[in-house]
Design a protein around this nucleic acid. Structure first.
Lengths: 111, 111
DNA sequence: CCTTAATATCACCGTATAGCGATACGGTCA
DNA sequence: TGACCGTATCGCTATACGGTGATATTAAGG
């Protein structure tokens, strides 16, 4: 036996759910935008090419995954990243894909 | 402007696809098992409660994401983890969920 | 109040995919 | 070659979910 513990199905499902949050380009685009600071829903809608309904839906997903904080100011709602893991995860994966891409072409990913 | 570069939609889709591979409990279970060393398809089928067809399908997904290597020995095929990033990713997420879980109950995740 | 703006929710559609049983494929050995 | 074992693929079903337009909700201003 190693130093590892077998994860049961339920734990694996939790981990999978966590990864699933990052497995959608629209949500990644939102996270990327929020990296530069808090933004209102309208700000996000203005900079992404999808409907307001969809932005709200994806924000809810991110919020319920405890990745975002929510602050209401008047009629506007500002979201911001609350979980530093977001940056770690993106760096890890992006630098990986970056290396992989450089091995094939000249495309460079950065975040 | 910060030190960041905006990722276009295509890059975000690549990153999302990468995360999607990790977003399924069965695939995570396979990765967890392969952490202890190479295993044949039958080995994996024996230790997971899903069909051989499904195992083969998920192995293909993992293989095409360049996470696994494939070695045929007779009629058997042995798979093993080829991408160290797998460990980094799991550690990052598991330790995170571990911390989060400890904040709520006494459940401990380890991998 | 009434209007308007900002956000959230609803009902729905279309697509992607996990999972299964059945079957095909490819080695090995008699 | 024929039988058998291990693996991959096929056709299919059921379900999850991203995306949309329409509508509800909530807050500020007149």
């Amino acid at each position: 036996m190693a130093q590892t513990t077998e994860l049961d199905r339920q734990s694996l499902e939790k981990i999978a759910s966590f990864f699933k949050v990052f497995a959608e380009p629209t949500r990644l685009a939102i996270l990327q935008m929020l990296r530069q600071g808090p933004a209102s829903v309208n700000d996000i809608v203005a900079s992404l090419s999808t409907s307001q309904a969809n932005i709200s839906k994806q924000l809810k997903t991110l919020y319920e995954a405890d990745l975002l904080t929510r602050e209401q100011r008047g009629t506007q709602v500002f979201y911001s990243i609350s979980e530093p893991l977001v940056f770690d995860l993106c760096e890890l994966v992006c630098s990986k894909l970056n290396r992989r891409a450089r091995a094939e072409s000249a495309v460079i990913y950065e975040i």
